[in-house]
Design a protein around this nucleic acid. Sequence first.
DNA 1: TTGAGTACGTGAAATTTATCACATACTCTT
DNA 2: AAGAGTATGTGATAAATTTCACGTACTCAA
Lengths: 198, 198
Amino acid sequence: MSTYLRTLGLEAASGTQSISSARLSEVTGFTAAQIRRDLANFGHFGRRGVGYSVEGLRQELRAILGVDIEWSVALIGVGNLGKALLAYKGFNQMGFTIAAAFDNDQRKVGSTLSGLTVEPVSKLAARVRELGIQLAIMTTPAEAAQEVIDSLVAAGIRAVLNFAPRRLRAPEGVQISNVDLTIEVEYLSHSLSQRRLS
Amino acid sequence: MSTYLRTLGLEAASGTQSISSARLSEVTGFTAAQIRRDLANFGHFGRRGVGYSVEGLRQELRAILGVDIEWSVALIGVGNLGKALLAYKGFNQMGFTIAAAFDNDQRKVGSTLSGLTVEPVSKLAARVRELGIQLAIMTTPAEAAQEVIDSLVAAGIRAVLNFAPRRLRAPEGVQISNVDLTIEVEYLSHSLSQRRLS
DNA sequence: TTGAGTACGTGAAATTTATCACATACTCTT
DNA sequence: AAGAGTATGTGATAAATTTCACGTACTCAA
């Protein structure tokens, strides 16, 4: 759905009013049938014989993805990757505001990055409650990850995007998405190796 | 398989000789049956009644994933994310050496980052051939992505890890993995929204 | 040497996901 | 007003993936 929303953004910018699943298929690479099935899962957004209204569908997708409202996000771990994400404009465009940044390293605490002052992890729970943060991005080292997520859960966070290369335990009802760069690269090296042999 | 390999690394460090699918299941979160099926797809690595040899299985997985040899990697796009990846030690540990970094921005060309001198994209093809690079990591803006991948393909690159939020076209035989951060975050905000309603 | 315990590998079943194909519904031209 | 053209939504089907359950094979103790 994210991909569809992004594609619709481009189409809207070029002034298209209506779009078919066939056209979406061309641009996104998914099959037309797949796209229709995906969209029909959430409602009847299209008109037969016509297609989907670009603006209408954008609104629907925004609502489905939950990006029709602003989310406050906490970022924990201001290493290289954390800094990159702080500076990443894509989040803001999608309605995600990084409202606070935390780190355990005393040398980093107090410094200002992309307009945010880095705070100590000890203040995490208090600040999460204060700012009404419901979503966290974790770019901590693997060793610290489980400890940090425990405090996040205790503070009432319900969704976490985890970059630490470790599977985290969290109670039912806390959604965790893992982004693991080594998995991606290893998948590529695997397919390169395979081709060497055949 | 990547996850299994990483887990085995931890087990090896703590001195374990042999490991069962049940134990792997506890640590990785996959079911034991799933793990056995995955591993059996590639060969008979375990011994019935005993389990898998930690060191033996590590070797097998390294070979399967292709990380038993060193890969030279090119990084294109030295923005915030590119810099973060250059500094990321995980790649090196897995046998990936970032051998060259490229950017189109004249202000960045010539600067040194993590021991590498940034080169202009115009030199890409020549350097790829010279260094025998087969794998590229793209952290360019979305607009430049398709153009860059075309030159990469022309230069003989066969696998690309793409961070630009755009689906790229490449000929058969060139493997592309996409990492799209907005998809991950939108998935989380979607599940948060769902819970609001129910 | 035998029996109890352990744990892999794998057919079979169940579940999930993707594709096909077409009835339905809309538009536009003549 | 009718017919040709377009494109959705969805049953039916196919493919892929996951889970179940158990035969087989190994270890260890008595």
